[in-house]
Amino acid sequence: MTSHHSTGSPVSPTEEAGSTDLLAEVARTVDAVPGVARREPSVGDFLRTLWKKSTSAEDQAPDTQGLRLDQVDGKASLTVAVWVSREAPGNPLMVSQEVASRVNHTLIERGIAPGSHQIIVRETE
C-alpha cells in the first residue's frame, strides 16, 4: 500500500548501456550505507516474491535486484526495499534518510537530478 505513483520510465539494464552502470552504482551506494543489511529481491511484498517465477534478463541482472529507478522530467527517483541491521548506528528512519542522502550524492555526481525516493524498511536483523 505504498502511496507513490511512478509515471516515468523505469531505468532497466535492458535499456541504454549507461543505465546498467547507473543502476549498479546506485545499488552499491545503497549497500554501502552503514546499517543496510540487505536488499529485498523484489520491491513487492512477500506473496509476490514467493510466486513470481521470472526469467527475464532484467531480473537476472546481478546486484540490482529490488531496486527501481524511475526517470520523470529528467529527475531520477529510487524505490528500494531494505532490511536494517539491529546494530545500525541509528534507527531505521535514520538509516533510510542516509540512504536517500547518499543516493542523491551519487546521482548528482553523474549529472542526474534527484527526484523523490521511496525507501521501504521491511525487516530488521
Binding site: 536517500a100 523523490s116 525516493h117 521501504i120
Partner: peptide, 25 residues
C-alpha cells in the same frame, strides 16, 4: 525467509524521500 510483511506504512515524508516501514516491523 518468507515473512508476511503486511502493508508498507509511510512513516516520514519529505520532498526528497518518503520512508515506509512494513506493518510487521
Amino acid at each position: 525467509s518468507n515473512l508476511r510483511r503486511g502493508a508498507d506504512i509511510p512513516v516520514h515524508r519529505e520532498p526528497a524521500a518518503t520512508v515506509s516501514f512494513s506493518e510487521m516491523l
